[in-house]
């Protein structure tokens, strides 16, 4: 019975165990005096500080500030990425015209645009949203493009044999056939939008989890930094899991 239960949840059990081990090691090396807690804090202190920041509202405020930028950036990236991806997937000329920009995006680090955005939009939410938008755009665009472009030829031929018009092929074959791969692109976009938000907040913001890290780093408050880092990780996991769930739901028809 126990072994059966274990086998079914092996990954979960082992993952939890390894996380716990790290936590215990973390506490142990500090307690044994091997590493100064000034550099790495301790799990106990971090959880206590988390409670304090939650109680005084700063944690919620920072989460909401980051989420606000994140949602704006992801919505923009989804709209533009899916829009352009559909366009480029359907019209080869559009793909060729967009190709160089995607090339630049793949080869150049997006963060290099940061000073430019600051010059245009100033420090704060608009710049953060712009950077996170650029971070998230590429996978959403690239997945949508390949979904539309690689529409199953057999299905197109079958549709043609029943007299389908180009718009029918687009709306009834290419678009629905692309949904799972577009959602997979959104899942990748979620992680990258969150990264973009945090990175941009590190450089210039007045609220948010990235701002909180940068702020406490300047004051050498390791424990307070750790709280924001942990929350970012949790946020990333939860958001990505939500998209994974959506991906599974939309992907249910594909042959496993």
């Amino acid at each position: 019975m126990m072994t059966e239960l274990y086998r079914r949840h092996e990954a979960l059990v082992l993952g939890t165990l390894s996380l716990l081990t790290i936590g215990i090691l973390w506490q142990a090396v500090v307690s044994a005096g091997l590493i100064n807690p000034f550099f790495i804090s301790t799990p106990g202190a971090v959880f206590k500080e988390m409670g304090v920041q939650f109680a005084d509202g700063t944690l919620v405020e920072n989460i909401l500030a980051s989420l606000h930028s994140f949602v704006l950036a992801l919505a923009l990236a989804a709209g533009v990425g899916i829009g352009l991806g559909v366009l480029a997937g359907w019209f080869p000329d559009a793909e060729a015209a967009l190709e160089p920009f995607i090339w630049f995006k793949y080869s150049a680090p997006t963060i290099a645009f940061y000073p430019l955005f600051v010059a245009w939009l100033g420090y704060g939410t608009p710049t953060i949203v712009a950077i996170a938008f650029l971070f998230a755009l590429t996978p959403i665009y690239a997945n949508t493009l390949s979904g539309i472009k690689n529409v199953d030829r057999d299905l197109v031929r079958a549709a043609h044999s029943f007299g389908a018009r180009p718009l029918d092929i687009f709306l009834r074959v290419a678009l629905p056939g692309s949904v799972p791969i577009v959602v997979a692109g959104l899942r990748l976009g979620v992680g990258r939008a969150l990264t973009g938000v945090v990175v941009a907040e590190l450089f210039g913001a007045s609220a948010g989890l990235g701002y909180s890290i940068a702020y406490h780093a300047q004051l050498l408050q390791t424990t307070k930094m750790m709280v924001s880092i942990l929350v970012i990780i949790l946020l990333g996991v939860v958001l990505t899991q939500m998209l994974s769930w959506l991906e599974k739901k939309t992907d249910s028809w594909r042959v496993p």
């Binding site: 199953d152 057999d154 299905l155 031929r157 079958a158 044999s161 009834r172 074959v173 056939g177 028809w253």
Partner: peptide, 11 residues
């Protein structure tokens, strides 16, 4: 036309 089996819309 009736095609080989891969021509059904899987979704």
């Amino acid at each position: 036309m009736v095609f080989q089996e891969a021509s059904l819309l899987p979704w």
